[in-house]
Amino acid sequence: MRVPEWRLMELLDIEHRGRVLRGALHTPQTTPAPAVVLCHGFGGNRAEFGYAFVRLAERLARRGIAAYRFDFAGCGDSDGEFADLTVSDQVEQAVAVLDAVGAHPAVDPARVSLMGMSLGGLTASLAAVRRPVRALALWAPAAAAAAMGEEGAARRAAAIEANGYDDFGGLPVYRAFAEDAAAIDPFADAAGHTGPVQLVVGSNDFVLPPDLIEEYRRLYGDRLDLHVIDEVGHGFETVPAREHLLDLTEAFLAKHV
């Protein structure tokens, strides 16, 4: 049976500091093509919630755009330990992935973009300063991971001191992550990207409250394409919201990559 051209996919492993990052590259029939690297959220994997990254990658391939979705070290099928996860390390991984994807024969190296969900969004915004990317798409970026208030930071530090980790919705946040994040300014450290940016967030998102959205407005100015989806939280938890999310991001990337 013939595989539709928009479902062409190859497993692509990328080495980073002695670890194998495992991922999947979706390619259109016509190459070399523009490409988008997809960065998943904290404790997630390359499929993302509701297989959103799989669906987005297939949509992009239909549009003639390659998409690479991968597991960060310590997540999914990639090498590494989850306890070693830090934002800075994820940024380094994303930069290595950008380089590897840009060098792939199916990809136009001058037309590579980044997108990310939650912690992957924060990671993507910081990696976009390290390598020139055409466009940046952010789903509910977890700026709060590196911009915790004093009360939240004190609570997290106390939990780590008592238990060895802070329990974040059933996932452990270890000392290495907390100490690394405290040294990052999610806005000043992301100020070097000069291309278009899309930011999509749920109106009830506790991870990205209005004050942090305003910081992104100030950071990106008139280059920011902001969308707030009503009545959903951090994971865009309804079928219509997720369909709208995919529609918005597909259109944005198709326009700017």
Rank of each mutant, 00 (worst) to 15 (best):
Ala135Leu: 09
Ser118Ala: 13
Ala124Trp: 08
Gly120Met: 10
Leu119Gly: 00
Arg130Ser: 02
Pro132Val: 02
Ser118Tyr: 12
Glu151Ile: 15
Ser118Pro: 10
Trp139His: 07
Arg134Lys: 12
Ala142Val: 09
Val133His: 02
Ala154Met: 12
Ala135Phe: 04
Ala145Ile: 09
Ala142Ile: 10
Leu119Ile: 01
Ala154Ser: 14
Trp139Lys: 08
Gly120Leu: 06
Met148Lys: 15
Pro141Asp: 07
Ala137Tyr: 01
Val112Asn: 02
Leu122Thr: 07
Ala145Trp: 15
Ala135Arg: 02
Arg155Trp: 11
Arg131Tyr: 09
Ser125Tyr: 00
Ala137Arg: 00
Ala127Val: 02
Ala157Leu: 12
Ala147Val: 08
Ala143Lys: 11
Ala135Val: 06
Ser118Arg: 09
Met117Leu: 13
Gly149Ile: 02
Arg111Ile: 00
Met117Ala: 14
Ala128Glu: 09
Arg111Pro: 00
Ala143Cys: 15
Ala145Gly: 13
Leu126His: 00
Met148Val: 03
Gly152Ile: 05
Met115Gln: 07
Gly149Pro: 03
Ala154Cys: 05
Met148Thr: 06
Leu114Thr: 06
Ser113Ala: 15
Ala127Asp: 04
Arg134Val: 11
Glu150Gly: 15
Gly152Glu: 13
Leu114Pro: 10
Gly120Glu: 04
Met148Ile: 07
Ala142Gly: 15
Arg111Trp: 01
Gly120Ser: 00
Pro132Met: 00
Ser125Thr: 03
Val129Trp: 01
Ala147Trp: 14
Gly152Ser: 10
Leu126Tyr: 04
Met115Thr: 06
Arg130Tyr: 00
Thr123Asp: 02
Leu138Gln: 07
Ser125Glu: 10
Pro132Gln: 09
Met115Phe: 07
Arg130Gln: 08
Ala142Trp: 14
Ala157Val: 00
Val129Ala: 12
Trp139Asn: 06
Leu138Arg: 05
Ala137Glu: 03
Gly152Asn: 08
Glu150Ile: 10
Leu126Val: 03
Leu119Ala: 06
Met117Thr: 14
Ala140Glu: 12
Val133Tyr: 02
Ala144Phe: 12
Ala144Asp: 11
Arg134Trp: 10
Leu138His: 11
Pro132Leu: 04
Ala135Glu: 01
Met115Tyr: 08
Ala140Gln: 09
Ala145Cys: 14
Leu114Gly: 09
Ala147Ser: 15
Thr123Lys: 05
Ala146Trp: 03
Pro141Tyr: 04
Met148Gln: 15
Leu114His: 11
Ser118Gly: 12
Ala128Lys: 13
Ala146His: 02
Ala124Arg: 02
Gly121Thr: 01
Gly116Ser: 03
Ala147Met: 11
Arg131Asp: 10
Ala137Asp: 09
Gly121Val: 01
Val129Ser: 15
Leu114Arg: 01
Gly152Trp: 04
Pro141Val: 02
Ala143Phe: 13
Gly121Tyr: 02
Met148Arg: 15
Ser113Trp: 04
Ala144Thr: 06
Leu138Thr: 08
Ala144Glu: 08
Ala146Val: 05
Ala142Asn: 12
Val129Met: 04
Ala128Leu: 11
Leu138Gly: 11
Leu138Trp: 08
Val129Leu: 05
Pro141Lys: 02
Glu151Thr: 15
Arg155Phe: 10
Arg111Glu: 04
Gly121Asp: 04
Met117Trp: 14
Ala146Lys: 07
Ala135Asn: 11
Arg134Glu: 13
Ala146Asn: 08
Arg130His: 14
Glu150Thr: 15
Glu150Lys: 13
